[in-house]
Write a protein that binds this DNA or RNA. Structure first.
Lengths: 133, 133
DNA sequence: CTGCGTGCAAATGCTTTGCAAAGAC
DNA sequence: GTCTTTGCAAAGCATTTGCACGCAG
């Protein structure tokens, strides 16, 4: 129940650094990853502030939470088209994937109604494959 | 590092009740759901025992964890074929789905190697649809 | 009997929150 | 100056673990 931007919102170094993390990285980030990035420019960001800003930015519609099975929540810039994610088993980084051919249709029991779906691919990302050779 | 069943394992009322929950329900269950079921037959099961037995049964290969985005872990009987799950937005129950046509192939970035995938359908289950009419 | 499994309560680990002080405007 | 945002530390929650006792074998 938060109005768009009719209510005063202040710009702080911390909030700027947090937003910058997403703009510069363009990859779903976990709170800890956001903290690391933000601390590069603003050394004294606290994890509590990261969590608070993530929540605020989600409420504002600037971020969307990315929930993955068995993983801490990640967040990504909102407004993107329908897409899914890739989780590297090695470095635990999450990447966005383009395209989703919803041709897979597991049989739904009678009377069930599906509204949406989540797909996650697991594997090794380009950066980690060399380490696996 | 637990051997199959060469090492002594004792049968207790609690463990029996926990195993029964899965056999009788045939649906992925959360620790809390397991506790509720188990307490029907053994009134004094503690949640700690549920967690301990879930871990043991997974180590023994009798259960497999079912991780879903943003949800507490569920567990289901092992040995089933590759399948995916359905989460009811209403009652939060998880159901197993048969069949998976892996025809959906989001574009992988160059150099990425996918090993497996997870698919979750969201919707309303047959039991909850009437309440939505 | 022996010692594994259990209940309880304390300990985690991650996320949220209260409060006084710092900072934006 | 006013009122939001921050940092710190304490509070919450779900899950795990230490310990002494109870029960299976």
């Amino acid at each position: 129940m938060k109005a768009k931007n009719t209510i005063a919102t202040r710009n702080t170094r911390q909030k700027d650094a947090i937003r910058a993390a997403f703009v510069e990285t363009d990859r779903p980030l976990s709170p800890e990853e956001v903290l690391s990035y933000a601390q590069r420019s603003v050394s004294d960001v606290s994890i509590a502030t990261v969590y608070r800003n993530l929540k605020t930015l989600v409420d504002d519609g600037w971020l969307v939470p990315v929930q993955l099975p068995g993983e801490p929540a990640r967040y990504e810039l909102s407004g993107k088209e329908h897409h899914h994610h890739f989780l590297c088993k090695d470095c635990r980084k999450v990447y966005e994937l383009e395209g989703c051919v919803p041709t897979m249709k597991p049989k739904l029991p009678r009377g069930f109604r599906a509204v949406s779906h989540d797909l996650l691919l697991h594997g090794i990302c380009a950066a980690c494959i060399p380490r696996h050779a």
